[in-house]
């Protein structure tokens, strides 16, 4: 393990080498029998690209082995960072469900409140002001101004 995550180069090289192998395997799904040099089949480009990626990442890995040891950070800081990103991602990903449920305006307000809270804002007055203000501006620009359709929530707007 230590050898593989020696530094960013080896990690990158390894990751993308594995990825290219997976891709090369997946291209078999749509490889067609009919293929001449004139009629280039649909699998040629994906194979060529994945193959190039495999070669390049292998070179990167080998080059990384020759470089000094430089891991990406200690575990404590990493886990705190990961938690923050996970929190933000969940907040954003939940939009997929909540947008349909709440409708645009309500969802925007909830999202902005939640986002500020995750990032550390604690003043309720500031949070509400920003959420309402930005939601109003966005509504004005997107729905009224540009008449783009957004999901209408249970309450009808």
């Amino acid at each position: 393990m230590k050898l593989l995550t020696r530094n960013s180069d080896t990690l990158t090289g390894l990751l993308f080498f594995c990825l290219s192998l997976v891709l090369l395997f997946e291209t078999r799904r749509f490889a067609t029998a009919m293929e001449t040099i004139r009629a280039i089949g649909p699998q040629v480009f994906p194979n060529a690209i994945a193959g190039t990626m495999a070669v390049l990442s292998l070179i990167l890995f080998i080059r990384g082995l020759g470089k000094p040891y430089a891991p990406l950070g200690n575990s404590g800081a990493l886990s705190r960072k990961a938690a923050l990103i996970a929190g933000l991602t969940c907040c954003i990903a939940s939009s997929i469900v909540l947008l349909n449920l709440l409708g645009l305006v309500l969802w925007m307000i909830c999202f902005l409140m939640a986002g500020q809270y995750i990032l550390g804002e604690r003043s309720w007055r500031r949070m509400v002001c920003l959420a309402l203000g930005i939601a109003a501006v966005m509504y004005a620009i997107f729905v009224i101004g540009l008449s783009i359709s957004f999901p209408v929530g249970m309450l009808g707007f």
């Binding site: 939009s95 999202f111 986002g115 990032l119 804002e121 920003l130 966005m138 783009i148 957004f150």
Partner: peptide
Amino acid sequence: TALLPVIALLCIIGAYA
């Protein structure tokens, strides 16, 4: 704390629109 949620909001709306 205010800017990042707004940018994230723009990102979501922009991707959906």
